[in-house]
Design a protein around this nucleic acid. Structure first.
Length: 371
DNA sequence: TCCGGAAGTT
DNA sequence: AACTTCCGGA
């Protein structure tokens, strides 16, 4: 690599075992190729115990981190990029460029504190996985398996990232939906739908993924928990679809990852669109919400509450299926194909986030438990 | 401290 | 494109 002359470390595998292999970097054909990006570097530091005194996850705040020693972080970044004049002023300018990209947010009022938007990052990392299909890894075929998992990716980390992301996305989606009802018209603002190829597209439900979170091993949630996932407060009905067709050789995590990526992409679209339409909040028509999952179908507030207070139907039970067939409050298939078609497993994802206790019916907002 | 514009660099 | 450098303003 051309930076060797200035004593910089190679950008790939510079610390063995890190979760950022070559594929996560820019394509070799692009200008400035294979150059580490700042958010990558920040995550690298955050992963290493030895930098805990310099930069660390904020306990109890998902994705939030504190730069404890700004000068040292800037020095490390400058060393990595061969920019000896780097300082925190410049580094923080680079971080501020991430605000618009929604990779990072500033935690206002807290010095040197930022928050990662993992729901964005996960898709920066997995652009090759189409929303309509699970990654080929779940096919269990050893050839596909090799092709689908980019070389060097740590499955444990991927697994954890996806799980962590999903938990975050669930809460975000639920909270924002309820706190910011949106009057959304997909025909009048196509730009808002645009999150590249991960945007709103017809989806198909991948059959056979069976994922019980409680049995999926250890989950490290940055800034939230280093406990095994068995400690996480999960909704009792949150095991996913029952297995119908699991191909031999498919591991549980692969199935889980497949489904979660699939669902997370949908959730990301939702989140993006909610954020894009923040400005339209005040114009929301009273009484009816446009279902952000389904784009063009309206849903009354009561429908919404019903969806939210119903148990998860990710593992559809006969009772809920029966209820759905005769209940006008549940979604009906429209005459024309919906612009956004989700499997029932995804649309059934609405349930109170684990840290909520009460629901204010008039404001449709979840009231958070006091800390 | 933090923000974001503007211009420059690779 | 992704910063780096500089800087005026809050």
């Amino acid at each position: 690599m051309d930076r060797m002359h200035c004593g910089c470390v190679s950008n790939s595998y510079w610390i063995p075992g890190l979760a950022f292999p070559d594929w996560a970097y820019k394509a070799e054909s692009s200008p400035g190729s294979r150059q580490i990006q700042l958010w990558h570097f920040i995550l690298e530091l955050l992963q290493k115990e030895e930098f805990r005194h310099v930069i660390a996850w904020q306990q109890g705040e998902y994705g939030e981190f504190v730069i404890k020693d700004p000068d040292e972080v800037a020095r490390l970044w400058g060393r990595r990029k061969c920019k000896p004049q780097m300082n925190y002023d410049k580094l923080s300018r680079a971080l501020r460029y991430y605000y618009n990209k929604r990779i990072l947010h500033k935690t206002k009022g807290k010095r040197f504190t930022y928050r990662f938007n993992f729901s964005k990052l996960i898709f920066v990392n997995y652009p090759m996985w189409d929303i309509r299909y699970p990654p080929p890894a779940v096919l269990g075929n050893s050839m596909c398996h090799t092709a689908a998992l980019p070389p060097g990716v740590h499955r444990e980390v991927l697994h954890n990232t996806i799980l962590a992301h999903k938990l975050l996305a669930d809460q975000l989606a639920c909270r924002r939906l309820l706190q910011s009802p949106i009057d959304y018209d997909s025909s009048t603002n196509k730009k808002a739908l645009g999150v590249g190829r991960h945007s709103i597209m017809p989806t198909s439900c991948f059959p056979g993924a069976c994922c019980n979170f409680r049995s999926s091993g250890h989950l490290y949630l940055p800034g939230l928990s280093s406990q095994p996932s068995t400690e996480l407060p999960l909704h009792p009905s949150r095991s996913l679809c029952s297995p119908t067709q699991v191909l031999p050789g498919t591991t549980e995590w692969q199935l889980c990852a497949s489904r979660l990526i699939h669902q997370s992409q949908v959730l990301m679209s939702l989140e993006e669109r909610i954020q894009s339409h923040r400005g339209a909040q005040g114009r929301a028509t009273g009484g009816h919400l446009l279902n952000p999952y389904l784009g063009h179908r309206t849903m009354s507030s009561e429908d919404h509450l019903h969806a939210l207070t119903s148990p998860s139907t990710m593992k559809p039970d006969p009772e809920s299926q029966f209820r759905a067939s005769g209940d006008k409050n549940t979604f009906q298939e429209p005459a024309e194909p919906p612009k956004i078609c989700l499997g029932h497993d995804v649309s059934a994802k609405l349930y109170p986030p684990p840290d909520t206790e009460h629901m204010n019916l008039s404001s449709k907002a979840w009231l958070l438990k006091p800390a």
